[in-house]
Design a protein around this nucleic acid. Structure first.
Lengths: 353, 353
DNA sequence: TTGAAAGCGCTAACAA
DNA sequence: TTGTTAGCGCTTTCAA
């Protein structure tokens, strides 16, 4: 097979155009100090020869690697892929991230890292040393892992923290969780609901708190109480079922429930069915995530759409800009929206009909 | 920000261990001619310093890039991602491909290429020149695009053609389409069906033909006719609906239908509903793909599971081995399996009940 | 079995 | 505005 070498290099272009390597390099990188005529001549040679710079060589000479690394939790991601239940978090990241990368001549690479192990630093450090990415996108629960953010900061690699508002190095980004929860709550209030239950996510996700806060404050603003109407889950089905049992077992049971994940929403649906409650007649239900799964339930679920693709796209842009502009001072917020489907309806005013 | 350089390089390790660069290189690459004691000493320094080789530098010096490129059709992939209907083809490729890559110190990168444009060569050529991948995985409809396979062969880059049995350069791989279609057909025959319709995929996918052939030969072996019971679609919903209308409109309508994609199967379900046919009582239905979507229909669909993850995993292994071993002479076949759910049932013997 | 030298393709720094 | 030089981190010769 022999060693594969670049077929067309900067040298070929330089020779063809009759200029120095440096001039070609300047044209490639769109740098100033090249006369238009010169630029045109070089570009013609580039096109003629079909030259494309090697990112390995570019990286070697101290320039960019044109690589953005998206770090996801290993166990969670693999579990989702194996379950084949249609969760498309990764796909949406790719949709937003890859396409935006492509627009700028970058590539996005997914890396799975085990959050809960004690060798996070080793794993991530190895990926960074091997790939030398120009930017890193962190997703929860990595976004607030100080072992990770510390390492990245130390290495001077720009990174985005999706789902984090914390101060500190890196670009904080959120999907407007508080706002979104309020959106869902207001929707239910408009439908006449007054007792609206909430199933929160686990405490180690900051966004769990933000969502709770959005729900509670929306209720308060409307003059209703949130007291005793919040249960915590871990985003999984089982925990959602337990939470639903507790909420629906209350003497003053809620007439609507907001679940912080689609799995927990499915659990609510199931528990309601077992208890003979009709959704949406007896119980309205709003889910977070809006992953494909919620369209196929009976009824299809009203859901908060998490703007994952838009957030990933924005993250890539900010990361690429990071070499010039400083990171935004405030957390970057991409707002989600409410998608109304069949699981929410007017509250029954009279307990009878 | 300044230029980011590798923090720990082979030089540091060499200095720490008191040996030459070359010796360290030999240890990294597990090459012979290193005394065990020496190897141990070097390895100790590597571990101590947390050294990880830069793939850019490795690639530069004519060695591997440790990159495997998975080429998918741009429009198809983006459409799937945007539709958010749970198709997880990409996820399954990542599941099989990425994890296997990781086991061998490789990374997998997805690249979207526009098949139908006239600049396929330019697009793919650019990706190859930029990334210098050690191997490429082609998925349909790229697998049998001679512009692509020709380019890859010319550049001497090992590649796998998923969904292709053709002779020629590259590793041909199939997911056992003929066998799978037979599996589905035999399942229906065992349930007592004799008139089994088939909705084929488009002609430019070789696998469309293989599936047809599996279905037809299974029918023939059982002594039944396939005459007039095959309609062609394009894998999409609309085409499936048209095909279903034609099949169910026959005077001797089939009592069971096999659809070559889940979208077409959904269409059959819809057409059956419109015609007042109960699935599975009046009509049995088997789908290809087994993507998440088919579990959420009413009833859930019996489906052929395409072993995408396993195939991607095997492709990666073969590609990595390609530098040593020659490619397999015969097409590599990873068989799928039938997942029985609620859309198939016994054929009614009497037309009455 | 080990080491020294050369060079991969490119860019930063400097010189003209 | 353009060109020259040196060097990135590594592996491949080739020599010891």
């Amino acid at each position: 097979m022999g060693r594969r070498r670049q077929s067309v290099t900067i040298k070929h272009v330089a020779a063809d155009a009759g200029v120095s390597l440096q001039t070609v390099s300047r044209v490639i990188n769109n740098e100033p100090n090249v006369r238009p005529a010169m630029k045109e001549r070089v570009q013609a040679s580039i096109d003629k020869l079909g030259y494309v710079p090697s990112i390995a060589a570019q990286r070697m000479s101290g320039s960019r690697s044109y690589l953005i690394l998206a770090i996801n939790d290993r166990d969670l991601t693999i579990a989702d892929w194996k379950a084949r239940e249609g969760r498309d978090w990764v796909d949406q990241m790719l949709l937003g991230g890859m396409l935006t990368c492509a627009e700028h001549g970058y590539r996005m690479l997914i890396e799975l890292v085990d959050t809960h192990s004690d060798h996070v630093e080793r794993e991530l450090g190895a990926a960074i040393a091997a790939l030398q990415p120009d930017g890193v996108i962190l997703t929860p629960p990595h976004s607030e892992n100080s072992l990770i953010t510390g390492l990245l900061a130390e290495k001077g690699i720009p990174f985005a923290r999706i789902g984090s508002k914390q101060e500190g190095p890196g670009i904080a980004m959120t999907m407007g969780d508080s706002h979104n929860a309020r959106l869902a709550t207001d929707h239910l209030i408009e439908l006449g609901h007054e007792r609206i239950g909430f199933i929160a996510g686990p405490e180690d996700f900051s966004l769990s708190g933000w969502r709770m806060e959005g729900w509670a404050s929306a209720l308060e603003d409307a003059g209703f109480s949130s007291e005793g109407l919040c249960e915590r889950g871990d985003f999984g089905f089982e925990s959602g079922a337990r939470a639903a049992e507790r909420l629906l077992g209350l003497t003053e049971a809620p007439t609507a429930i907001i679940a912080s994940s689609d799995q927990m929403a499915l659990a609510v649906l199931e528990v309601a069915r077992r208890r003979g409650l009709n959704v949406p007649k007896d119980l309205s239900l709003v889910s977070f995530d809006n992953s494909p799964i919620v369209r196929f339930t009976q009824p299809a679920l009203t859901a908060i759409d998490q703007p994952i693709a838009a957030t990933a796209a924005r993250a890539v842009e900010l990361l690429i800009d990071a070499r010039k502009k400083p990171a935004p001072a405030e957390p970057v917020q991409i707002q989600g929206e409410l998608v109304v489907r069949g699981s929410t309806a007017s509250a029954r005013v009279d307990a009878g009909s």
